Simulated scan of single mutants.
Amino acid sequence: MKNTILILLILFYSVPLKAQNFFTSQYPQVWERASEYTLEVAKAMPEENYGFKPEADAMTFGGQLLHIVDNISFLTRLISGESKTFYDRTKAEELNKDEIIEILENANDYVGSLISGISTDDLNTAIEFRKLEMSKENIFYLLRDHQVHHRGQCIVYLRMAGVKAPPYVGW
């Protein structure tokens, strides 16, 4: 019976350690690869098509990329407590391709710095997001998921505009 309890305790405590180990040892590279792939997708679209959208109610290609940045601004505030704005939203329509790419790169780099600088205790801190309690670690995963979602839409836009999408980059 003591051995069973000991084994259960070891299993109970080892699962969180493995999750923490993944985040600290591998997630920084996961974020970097995901960010680089998004930048490749952004670079693939010719500047004249940054205003492309498949229908009137859809975001433009450039708008999809800025929406990723806006989400980074919103969600990283939950992690750092700092409100970070990467561009003047009132002038979003005036931004060209190179400016949007630079803004996206700066926002992704900011997330990367938060990933590399966060302590395990802070990573496990519970926060409230949309009436749900979750850890700050979950917010990092949400940042990636949101970017992947809109990057996928950008890939569809590329194809609709007759532009070859960059080859897929996975984990």
Score class of each variant (00 low, 15 high):
Phe74Glu: 14
Leu17Ile: 15
Ala44Gly: 07
Ile155Met: 08
Tyr157Phe: 09
Glu55Thr: 07
Asp88Val: 11
Lys91Trp: 06
Gln20Cys: 02
Ala107Glu: 07
Gly81Val: 11
Thr38Gln: 07
Ser135Pro: 01
Thr90Leu: 10
Ile101Met: 04
Tyr87Val: 12
Met160Lys: 13
Leu66His: 08
Tyr157Val: 02
Glu105Tyr: 01
Glu94Gly: 02
Leu158Asp: 03
Pro167Gly: 07
Arg77Gly: 08
Tyr168Asn: 09
Lys18Asp: 04
Ser135Lys: 12
Arg159Trp: 02
Leu66Met: 11
Asn71Met: 13
Thr38Pro: 01
Leu8Gly: 08
Leu123Thr: 09
Asp109Pro: 00
Gly170Met: 01
Ala56Tyr: 04
Tyr37Cys: 01
Ala107Lys: 05
Phe86Ile: 08
Ile100Lys: 06
Tyr27Glu: 05
Thr76Arg: 02
Trp31Asn: 14
Gln20Leu: 14
Ser119Cys: 09
Lys164Leu: 11
Glu93Trp: 01
Ser116His: 12
Lys2Gly: 02
Ser116Gln: 14
Pro54Lys: 10
Gln147Ile: 02
Gln64Leu: 14
Leu8Trp: 03
Arg159Ser: 09
Arg151Asp: 02
Cys154His: 00
Ile100Thr: 10
Leu104Asp: 11
Thr85Phe: 13
Asp88Cys: 10
Met134Val: 13
Asp121Tyr: 05
Gly162Trp: 07
Gln20Ile: 09
Asn96Phe: 00
Lys43Tyr: 04
Glu48Thr: 10
Lys84Gly: 05
Ala92Ser: 15
Ala19Asn: 07
Ile127Pro: 05
Arg151Ile: 02
Asp57Gln: 12
Gly170Asn: 08
Asp98Ser: 10
Phe74Leu: 13
Glu102Thr: 12
Pro28Ile: 13
Ile100Gly: 05
Leu65Gly: 03
Leu104Ile: 04
Asn21Phe: 12
Gln147Ala: 11
Thr4Asn: 12
Leu123Ser: 08
Arg89Asp: 15
Arg151Gln: 09
Asn49Leu: 10
Pro28Val: 13
Ile7Cys: 06
Ala42Ser: 10
Val163Phe: 07
Gly162Ala: 10
Leu75Thr: 03
Pro167Glu: 15
Glu133Leu: 02
Asn3Asp: 15
Ile101Arg: 00
Cys154Leu: 08
Pro46Lys: 04
Gly117Asp: 12
Ile155Thr: 11
Glu137Trp: 05
Arg159Ala: 06
Val156Ile: 14
Phe61Ala: 03
Phe140Asp: 10
Asp98Trp: 00
Arg77Trp: 12
Asp70Tyr: 03
Ala19Ile: 14
